[in-house]
């Protein structure tokens, strides 16, 4: 346990350092984009978050399958933790997107396939988290695993349907077409690595927290049993 804790400390420090480096790269190292201006910097938060949101939901999908297959509580914990963090990153994507879109596209939102799919994705995993709250203790893991699988499989079909829907109607805004200079690429890579480390750190911490909660519940049940036995002894 102490060994793990030392590792987490080091990992935390490295993540912190990388986040500082990413901030430096975004605001000092990367040049201001000519046509878009300062608002383009949000791109370095937006893209890594989008990537991580999809990655997190993919982990939820795989862990859900493994849970149904192996029936090991650990996989359920991973699926849940990953979905929770995925929703956070997906929320960041959905908030940073419109902030960038308003000055560039002149609208907060457009029903483009990528945007719409991300919104549906966000909905699916918010529902996933809600399902875990309302489902009974003994069904929670199975139900959410099944929903995690359904939700993820649904994403490519949704994307195809929305793309087809949009190509029939004329598109108001087409293509993003951002040409990136080398320092910008470097910044994007640094920011992606920093965000990935942050994601891993959050995931590990969330799983540790969930394990502790599980243990506390076990201990509580044990103590309650003891008290119950004591009472019975005294009564009889």
């Amino acid at each position: 346990m102490t060994h793990n804790r030392a590792f987490l400390k080091i990992f935390q420090f490295v993540t912190f350092f990388m986040m500082l480096l990413a901030l430096y790269a975004i605001f000092v190292y990367a040049p201001v984009e000519k046509s878009m201006g300062i608002v383009q910097k949000i791109f370095y938060l937006h893209v890594p978050s989008a990537f991580l949101a999809f990655f997190a939901f993919f982990i939820t999908f795989i862990a859900s399958i493994l849970y149904l297959y192996k029936r090991n509580h650990r996989w359920d914990m991973i699926a849940f933790s990953s979905a929770e963090i995925g929703v956070i990153f997906c929320t960041i994507v959905l908030i940073t997107g419109p902030i960038w879109a308003k000055p560039i596209w002149n609208v907060w939102w457009t029903w483009d396939p990528r945007l719409t799919t991300t919104l549906i994705l966000w909905f699916i995993y918010v529902v996933y988290l809600m399902l875990r709250r309302v489902a009974g203790e003994n069904q929670r893991s199975t139900f959410s695993a099944v929903f995690g699988i359904f939700g993820f499989i649904n994403v490519p079909i949704t994307f195809l349907a929305i793309r087809l829907w949009r190509t029939i109607h004329p598109l108001v805004i087409t293509g993003k077409g951002i040409s990136i200079s080398t320092p910008m690429t470097h910044t994007l890579i640094i920011a992606s690595v920093a965000f990935f480390l942050l994601f891993l750190l959050l995931l590990i911490n969330r799983i540790v927290l969930e394990k502790m909660r599980f243990k506390v519940e076990e201990i509580r049940a044990f103590i309650e049993d003891k008290i119950h036995l004591e009472h019975e002894k005294q009564g009889g």
Partner: peptide, 18 residues
Amino acid sequence: TKARDVMLSILVFPISVP
């Protein structure tokens, strides 16, 4: 589950989009 009817609609709608 609790809140059965509400839960059903919010489970079904996101998946039935396509």
